[in-house]
Measured scan of single mutants.
Amino acid sequence: AVCQVIGMYDYTAQNDDELAFNKGQIINVLNKEDPDWWKGEVNGQVGLFPSNYVKLTT
């Protein structure tokens, strides 16, 4: 993983390639090539999510 982030809001996947997560959930970021849509993993599920829905862990 590149880094870990925390969901600031609940996110519901809109497409099959997206990653759903809940507020407060830890997401392992796998790829930040696109500044707006990062690739991440939660509980074995991998997908894209909007980078503005998360904050970096300290």
Rank of each mutant, 00 (worst) to 15 (best):
E33K: 10
N15D: 11
I6V: 15
Q14C: 06
N15C: 06
G40Q: 00
N52I: 08
D36N: 11
F21M: 05
A20M: 06
K23I: 02
A13D: 00
K23A: 15
M8C: 13
V54Q: 01
G7E: 04
Y53P: 04
F49W: 03
L48Q: 07
G44R: 02
N43S: 09
V5H: 05
F49S: 02
V2A: 07
E33P: 05
V42G: 05
P50H: 00
Y11I: 06
N28Y: 13
M8N: 06
A20T: 15
A20C: 11
C3E: 12
C3P: 01
F21V: 14
N22F: 08
G44M: 01
T12Y: 10
T57W: 11
L56M: 12
L19V: 10
P50K: 06
E18W: 01
N15K: 14
D36W: 09
L19E: 07
E33R: 08
N52G: 10
K32C: 12
W37K: 03
K39V: 08
E41T: 08
L19Q: 01
Q14E: 12
L56W: 08
T57N: 13
K32L: 08
P50M: 02
P50L: 01
A1D: 09
V42Q: 05
Y11K: 01
V54A: 06
D10I: 01
N28D: 10
K55P: 02
D36C: 12
F21I: 10
E41S: 09
A20F: 05
N52D: 13
M8I: 15
N15S: 14
N52V: 08
G47N: 05
L48R: 13
D16W: 04
L30V: 13
F21N: 01
N31R: 08
G40C: 02
K55Q: 11
L19P: 02
G47P: 01
L30R: 04
D36R: 14
W38C: 03
F21A: 01
N43C: 06
D10L: 04
Q45S: 11
Q45M: 13
T58L: 11
N43W: 00
D34T: 08
T57V: 13
I26V: 15
N52T: 13
L56G: 12
G24M: 04
Q4Y: 07
G40K: 02
V2K: 13
L30T: 07
A13P: 13
